[in-house]
Design a protein around this nucleic acid. Structure first.
Lengths: 120, 120
DNA sequence: ATTTGAATACGAAAACATTCGTAGATACTA
DNA sequence: TAGTATCTACGAATGTTTTCGTATTCAAAT
């Protein structure tokens, strides 16, 4: 069950905001040059695929992610490690940390996290 | 210049093995149910797009990646951080490290790397 | 020389993803 | 009630990626 790029964007919104209407997703994404019915259609397709569930009890249907955020993230990350870093997690991590965008705060978080891994 | 998934697989081989013929790439990928001419065609498309260069001086052409491995990796990683982790590098790193696949050796590498970052 | 095998070129089909127009239903408002 | 706004459903057009069949060229082996 691999989400496409567009599906991923929609999932992000649903994970972030929880149960949402198509209009809410549409407005959150705020993509120039994509119409409302495009997002609607995508979400209907996602329903078909079982990626989301929906509540149709009122006229405006409410959608909710069925795929679990952490699971999908992990899957995509693993795939990236394999396909882009030849299976080396540390190479990915080092490139991520070396990219200038990482704040001191984030580095500290990571150090702390590494400490907790030690304890086992 | 964003490689598609198939293009990425081919680039991996070229980065890994250096200049290679279509047959070498084809055999390395060893994908069931994809024919030789499919790989050939993909590599020709990549040539059009300027992702690879080739030496046609002998009958069997030799291809070489033109895109730089580290640049592409970084680009894909950044994209992933944005689109999957809402811009948080540390969340990506922590998920990567938490995934059980990371050996003690790799963890040590990362710690050493963090130390070098400190020095600035 | 002829055959055989391995290579390229390339159009076109197939598969997949994205986009939107339009029709019809439902609710809200004057 | 009539009109307007907002929603869903969905087919179909478009765009992109992947796949392969076939023609052709070249080189090596018989």
């Amino acid at each position: 069950m691999k989400p496409t790029e567009s599906e991923m964007e929609i999932l992000q919104v649903l994970w972030d905001k929880g149960q949402s209407s198509v209009r809410e997703v549409f407005e959150t994404l705020d993509k120039k040059d994509v119409g409302y019915t495009t997002i609607l259609k995508l979400m209907q397709i996602m329903l078909d695929k079982g990626m989301v569930i929906r509540d149709t009890s009122s006229k405006t249907h409410l959608y909710q992610a069925k795929l679990v955020k952490e699971e999908i993230q992990e899957k995509m990350l693993d795939k990236m490690i394999d396909s882009v870093y030849n299976g080396s997690t540390s190479r990915l991590v080092m490139q991520a940390l070396g990219n200038e965008r990482t704040s001191q705060e984030e580095l500290d978080e990571i150090k702390a996290f590494l400490k907790t891994l030690e304890l086992n």
